[in-house]
Nucleic acid binder design. Structure first.
Lengths: 223, 223
DNA sequence: ACCTGAACACCGTTCAAGT
DNA sequence: ACCTGAACACCGTTCAAGT
């Protein structure tokens, strides 16, 4: 039976999960499908189109964890009077969902940052974040900016988080770069290090808390 | 006269500025230096080492715009009683300096995000941000997180900003993705669009303002 | 110390031609 | 509709050998 477009995307996703973004070549995808390289160009215009599809899938996988604001078009699956978390909690939940989705795949953040041309799922995500910010009481141009700010932060955070985990850039015997740490030239970093640095999870949570507090404290009540 | 390591980095930087990150190949660098490919591997271990050097240069070019906190080791060039902006203004200035440095080169954000293994300049930048946050009154583990948060945000923001400017991902006749915008499925985005979206500069300033306010409002006065 | 020549093992992309 | 064969124009990296 013939290979279909979805098969190509699936194979690419498996390859990504197994060996990361820079092992992901059209030729490897073809191999995995038992087909010659040229064949995949019948299903897909570009490697870039392929990566954009992958990126939008990753974004899509977070949508279940991103609350739908009230103005949304989707019919509520729970009764409308179900307990609705306050906007701050919803923004926090959304941010964690986005991070988790990126962390679920090697180089997930790099993929999304590099190729999430506004795919359908990215648009839905942006819409929801903007909607939640509005429900938090932000006026319209600011609400869009707030959603964008949150997304930029999450992307930036996970990007460096995943690069730290990359064995290519990791010296295993030193928790922080050995190469001439110059301890007295970096007094604050050294002090922070002595105090004990938080792990990624708590650093992320703290950053999100900072941001969400900023967003919601900027709000004036809507009605 | 022989090529020196710095010449290789310089040539790479020129190439980056002329044609962006994915036109930057070891062979093109060699051509520009009038030398064969193999030669550049005498000066540089890896393409990655080269990119890390470029990234740290870009970061370094922002340091002049990043205030040195009082705990810093550098001797002050201005008299110590010179007017010192409040921490919020210093954080804001730092963020803008980082963004400007990235914007000064095509794919500057991608370069820094992908290859700023803690180079010396990146460490100095992190140290200063942490220091300013401390001066703003944040206790130590939190100050480090705050600096990191700011950096992640700036990186994430400029990353998407520079990708939007990339002609590869840009449909010139529509300001927002034409492909089936599904206007009623994205009510908040549509509303924001109708209201008129802010340009990159003001969106960035608004995001930074949000963040800086959050950071400084978390502070308790230090003395 | 610095470079050449030449190779190795890859890439993405295109396209006539086949079925 | 879907794929092969084969080519084109590239890559990063290594390494003996030259000077």
């Amino acid at each position: 039976m013939p290979v279909r477009r979805a098969d190509v995307i699936d194979a690419a996703m498996e390859l990504l999960d197994e060996s990361g973004l820079d092992q992901l070549s059209t030729r490897r995808i073809a191999d995995r499908l038992g087909v010659r390289v040229g064949a995949i160009y019948w299903h897909v215009k570009d490697k870039d189109e392929l990566l954009a599809e992958l990126a939008d899938r990753v974004v899509g996988s977070c949508l279940d964890g991103v609350p739908v604001p009230d103005g949304g078009a989707e019919p509520p699956t729970a009764p409308p009077s179900a307990p609705v978390a306050d906007p701050a909690a919803r923004l926090t939940a959304a941010a964690h969902a986005v991070r988790d989705a990126m962390l679920a795949h090697p180089d997930g953040a790099a993929l999304v940052a590099g190729h999430a041309v506004p795919g359908p799922n990215s648009l839905v995500l942006a819409d929801r974040l903007c909607g939640i910010a509005r429900e938090a009481g932000l006026p319209l141009p600011l609400a869009a900016v707030a959603g964008d700010t949150l997304l930029s932060y999450v992307t930036g955070f996970v990007l460096q988080e995943q690069r730290r985990g990359d064995p290519l850039h990791h010296h295993p015997n030193t928790s922080v770069p050995a190469p001439g740490f110059a301890p007295d030239r970096l007094p604050h970093l050294a002090a922070a290090l002595a105090e004990g640095l938080p792990d990624d999870d708590t650093a992320f949570a703290a950053g999100i808390d900072l941001l969400v507090t900023a967003v919601t404290s900027r709000a004036r009540p809507r009605r």
